[in-house]
Design a protein around this nucleic acid. Structure first.
Lengths: 203, 203
DNA sequence: TGAGATTTTGACCATCCGGTAAAGCGACGT
DNA sequence: ACGTCGCTTTACCGGATGGTCAAAATCTCA
């Protein structure tokens, strides 16, 4: 009783999702067209619709598949580790995620920016619970004097905001820095230093 | 020789821009429809097109009108003031701008997210020059030991990222914090404290 | 090889959308 | 009273787009 999806089905679905990620992240849900996605996937439009029932289905499949990956770095926080190191590690992983998967980051950003029509349940469900859990962890570290004190939720927001900024607003960052500079290399240094300052408790 | 635009033209154009801001910021350029904008403005679609030649014209009119307002807080940096106070003041003004004009913030974010098809010249022109100027000012303050040292450009990015996050990703912020909490009130406190920590030079 | 299931295609459809054309309407000056 | 000018509306068009369908091509496996 192994799954009844053939090898070719797996491949085609993967192709379509890859193409959908490309197109949706660049044009947004409304800007993307089935023809465009199909072309990017090397298929005809009806062929694409043989594997997914609708444009929206491709979109939500992408979003759902994304959320877990996106939240993994947060889950990796180790209560037994050194607090500053742990949170800085989270910052680093999140920044690398934005650097290595900018299309995913932009897809996400577009969905949230439009009011999260598809993702809202996940936001106030899975996401909220996960954040609450780790915010509590961070709060404990602060209470123990092992992290500079602030509101843990807003600290997490600041990490999201800063790391994703480099992916979501990449054109702006590049325009402002100029073509000679390397945004991601600098971001690595600067973001790390920024949060080292924010997190390290004052003697 | 006074301008030949009548009073009613001024009013209608303003109505249309207001409606366009509403619709474009909520649905994005592709998601927005002329009918939708016209309805929001209390006009018929052909009537709207009597005042603007195309959908894109409404959109770019909005963007152009916006950029100046958006950059005003940066221009207000006073070289003669106290560095920490000045930059914290910039943070506060930028946060208030995001709080009071979330539609503008989201319109902007959407444009950048899609690669700034309309705004790119402004980004590498006006914006870059303005940022360079003030980055140099901030750099001087740092060199004088009156601000904690970092890369001024990335410091500015971090201010943009953090303040706009509360407007652009408002649904996510609200979902994570829960309905009882007041994101903007907390943001005011937390963002201020965050940057106080980042900016204040160590003894 | 051949039957049956799976995959692919081309032709087609209904709807929506940006934009146009032309006629109607109201105020105002002569 | 009438013509003109500025504003508004009704009717319409062409193209794009999401999606359907039935037939054709291809693959699988006995």
């Amino acid at each position: 009783m192994p799954d009844d999806t053939t090898r070719i089905q797996k491949n085609r679905r993967a192709q379509i999702l890859e193409a959908g990620l490309d197109v949706f992240s660049a044009e947004g849900f409304n800007g993307a067209t089935l023809d465009g996605i199909a072309r990017a996937a090397g298929l005809s439009k009806p062929n694409l619709l043989y594997y997914f029932p609708s444009k929206e289905a491709v979109y939500v499949a992408l979003l759902n598949g994304l959320l877990d990956t996106w939240l993994d770095p947060l889950r990796a926080l180790d209560p037994a580790g050194d607090p500053v190191e742990e949170v800085l590690g989270y910052v680093r992983r999140k920044l690398h995620l934005a650097r290595d998967y900018p299309r995913e980051s932009r897809l996400f950003a577009g969905e949230i920016l439009r009011g999260a029509p598809q993702l809202q349940p996940e936001l106030s469900g899975t996401l909220r619970r996960l954040v609450d859990t780790h915010a509590r962890q961070i709060g404990d570290w602060m209470a123990a004097g092992r992290l500079a004190t602030s509101d843990p939720h807003h600290l997490i927001f600041s990490i999201w905001a800063l790391t994703q900024h480099y992916a979501d607003f990449e054109v702006q960052v590049r325009a402002v820095l100029g073509a000679e500079r390397d945004p991601w290399a600098e971001a690595e240094r600067e973001v790390q230093a920024h949060f080292a300052r924010v997190l390290t408790p004052t003697g």
